[in-house]
């Protein structure tokens, strides 16, 4: 019943235009300061968690991303949810069997923060194969927001990407394609523990550089040439250009290894069911798109 109801109401998502007044330097400076306050501890696996290991974060992150994609969540929901997850785990030791509950709760809250029509508790529980119950998720929500001290409006790399693009003298369609590719990198980074020590601004800048590189946009546009762009972005986020380059290279190698895995997965699953195959055929991993 309620699903039907939702279905009728939701024809298209309405979004506000970017507010030019919020894409100025003053706001950017504030964001650069603010991003530090909502950053997770880098060493929580060593210092806080007893049962949870880095590979488990990857498993839960991959699942979360899958759910976000399938539910067509706004792009920021996933990185924001990962920020909550890491911050929670920075304070609270958690049992392994509850990690998925935490992941679901983080998506639940992040979705409320970023979406007009947020994910429901019930739906998220279904995604855990009903291993958790909605009332548990709601209780967990309370615990989560409490542990995060209600600091829920954490910066995501997406927030920074908009600022970068605003400052870049490019045509709108070029921006659009950079944005889209950079966002993919951002999501990729959020799944990987190596990037936990990088602030969102760095992830954003690294992703933009990697996107521009991957798209070979630097060949035709001098502003987008590697040197020029890394110099420009490192000044915008006030970091050393070498750090930015390191981050971008890390992103590229992560992409490469993810692609390899995805390919393997494709091969192995093609031999499986027909159902799978049908699914894959419409969404192939397009390796040709990638130039490393």
């Amino acid at each position: 019943m309620e699903h039907q109801l939702l279905c009728c109401e939701v024809e298209t998502i309405r979004r506000a235009y970017h507010d030019a007044n919020l894409l100025n330097d003053r706001v950017l400076q504030t964001m650069l300061k603010a991003e530090e306050t909502c950053s997770p501890s880098v060493s929580y696996f060593k210092c806080v968690q007893k049962e949870i290991l880095p590979y488990m974060r990857k498993i839960v992150a991959t699942w979360m991303l899958e759910v976000c994609e399938e539910q067509k969540c706004e792009e920021e929901v996933f990185p924001l949810a990962m920020n909550y997850l890491d911050r929670f785990l920075s304070f609270e030791p958690l049992k392994k069997s509850r990690l998925q509950l935490l992941g679901a709760t983080c998506m639940f809250v992040a979705s409320k923060m970023k979406e007009t029509i947020p994910l429901t508790a019930e739906k998220l529980c279904i995604y855990t194969d009903n291993s958790i119950r909605p009332d548990e998720l709601l209780q967990m929500e309370l615990l989560l927001v409490n542990k995060l001290k209600w600091n829920l409006a954490a910066m995501t790399p997406h927030d920074f990407i908009e600022h970068f693009l605003t400052k870049m003298p490019l045509a709108e369609d070029t921006k659009q394609i950079i944005r889209k590719h950079a966002q993919t990198f951002v999501a990729l980074c959020a799944t990987d523990i190596k990037f936990i020590s990088n602030p969102p601004s760095m992830i954003a800048a690294g992703s933009v550089v990697a996107a521009v590189q991957g798209l070979h946009l630097g060949n035709t546009n001098t502003f987008l040439s590697y040197q020029c762009l890394t110099h420009f972005l490192s000044q915008v986020i006030k970091c050393d250009p070498d750090c930015l380059r390191a981050c971008q290279e890390q992103i590229e190698s992560l992409l490469e290894s993810s692609l390899r895995q995805a390919q393997q997965h494709n091969v192995s699953s093609e031999t499986k069911t027909v159902e799978d195959e049908a699914d894959l055929s419409c969404t192939p991993t397009d390796v040709r798109d990638v130039n490393i």
Partner: peptide, 21 residues
């Protein structure tokens, strides 16, 4: 690049449409 599936089994989606019901 953005056609890459980051998670296994996840299609790449254009997230411009409303949520699937």
């Amino acid at each position: 690049m953005s056609n890459v599936r980051i998670s296994n089994g996840s299609p790449t989606l254009e997230r411009m449409e409303a949520r699937q019901s």
